[in-house]
Design a protein around this nucleic acid. Structure first.
Lengths: 254, 254
DNA sequence: GCTACTTGTTGATCTCGGTCAAGTCGCGCC
DNA sequence: GGCGCGACTTGACCGAGATCAACAAGTAGC
């Protein structure tokens, strides 16, 4: 810990939570500037990760929570057969590692999908700061709760939705979350592969590929490899909740 | 069980966390007796719920977290079409309501599956106590984290497992959780309907019914309406990871 | 007891999405 | 450039589980 002379590491990206672009989305939301300094003391910069780099792995001992600062992560569990299930994709401002609090070991792995930087919150220090700053405690709970809500949505999707609805919901969710980061909501640059999308949705790659094709045929999307243009957000929205009345997969445009 | 034992006054609800049978599973775990008194001050007894009674409903304003003291709850979301998805079944010692922390409104409903008593933790008071008792903060995080882990397991099940594996995993999970409550692990008395099980597993009732039949034919279970005897726990275990693969052992979740 | 209703079981058929298999595209590398 | 490999797409077929439908067994009300 750096309680004495603070060594400034100029290679590190983050300066302080107060000056972070995610200020209003992340832990600092609603925290006043005095308290922010305390939070800053608990945040340790983490080296940047390149595509495919591991943040933590299933079974690792828990010692910190992480917040995505830029880029994106996937969390997943893998079974011996090489089979894996993607649990979630994590964009800037989202927290990762909460599952490990239960028993001090990570139960899933986290890997960068692209160049990604991370804020590390060593748990011991975080506890101290949270103890000193009640409003931060509340905000931390909020951020954790968001992950719970995301998992619940995921669950509903897996339990009830048809394949096409799943993909539509997934795309809408990505667009929304990028929108919150003040980015374009009609152009998505997917950082994950088709295989990862399929796993997340509980489908197989072939199905995902066909669905992209079908949605493109319907004029809803323009798909070019990793780049997705949402041409008709309204129609995409329609696809998200047609629990019973499904498109007969012709060019059904209303 | 009922003979010779001290007659507990069932009208008298919770006495204190210190004297609660769930002491070691619930929030009090690892908290010393002085601090327990503070926790007690934050716990408000909640009236008992009867079968079908609602604890909170989707959209309700958030003001408290809840811990199941006895009985069981289901949490679920319902879509306009009357369609519902069960998110989880909650047994004694498990926390409910975490999803509402994100935006002050419950995003799912919670309903009792049988006679159930609940400890209510008004959030404002809980925050104060957590502030005073760091070890309680950590334990609260643990309990919340357990729910995250349970959701992750649920997700993996929905994404990768076959119907039969899902039911096997569900039954094993129930047996484990009841086992932790020091009950018989070979006889389950299901408090939920076949429809609720089906929804939880992402299947339809007919399939669940057929699977029970098949497992009975295989000599693994003896099924009589809501009462399930696990005759061959070893075979049930085998069914849990027949697919291509599953979590090897992972860490034990408390 | 009888009737009406809810919950669960069983059988016959259908279908969405998985599986298998054969391309095609994009990209790094020599 | 051409080669090789992984990521993606497309097509033909199939099967697990959904759907439809009839029936059985509890359960509540009278």
């Amino acid at each position: 810990m750096d309680s004495g002379a603070v060594v400034l590491d100029l290679n590190q990206l983050r300066r302080s939570c107060g000056s972070c672009a995610l200020h209003e989305l992340c832990l600092p939301a609603g925290i006043d500037s005095d308290d922010l300094k305390r939070l800053d003391a608990a945040v340790r910069d983490k080296r940047k990760l390149g595509r495919g780099d591991t943040l933590f792995r299933q079974g690792d001992t828990f010692h910190a929570l992480y917040v995505v600062r830029s880029g994106s992560l996937k969390t997943f569990v893998e079974s011996p057969g090489g089979d894996l299930q993607i649990l979630g994709f994590h964009l800037p401002g989202e927290i990762v590692g909460v599952d490990a609090l239960a028993n001090d070991h990570h139960l899933c792995s986290a890997e960068a999908l692209e160049h990604t930087s991370i804020c590390e919150l060593p748990y011991v220090q975080l506890q101290e700061v949270v103890h000193e700053v009640p409003s931060l405690y509340r905000q931390l709970m909020r951020v954790i709760s968001r992950e719970v809500v995301a998992e619940q949505r995921h669950l509903v999707m897996m339990g009830k939705q048809q394949a096409q609805e799943r993909l539509a919901i997934f795309l809408r969710s990505l667009a929304d979350r990028y929108g919150r980061l003040s980015r374009d909501t009609t152009t998505l640059t997917l950082s994950m592969s088709r295989y990862e999308i399929a796993s997340y949705l509980g489908l197989v790659v072939e199905t995902v590929s066909r669905l992209f094709g079908r949605m493109e045929d319907a004029g809803i999307l323009a798909v070019n490899r990793k780049t997705i243009h949402i041409l008709r957000p309204d129609l995409l929205e329609d696809l998200c909740d047609q629990g019973l009345g499904r498109l007969p997969h012709g060019a059904e445009v209303v």
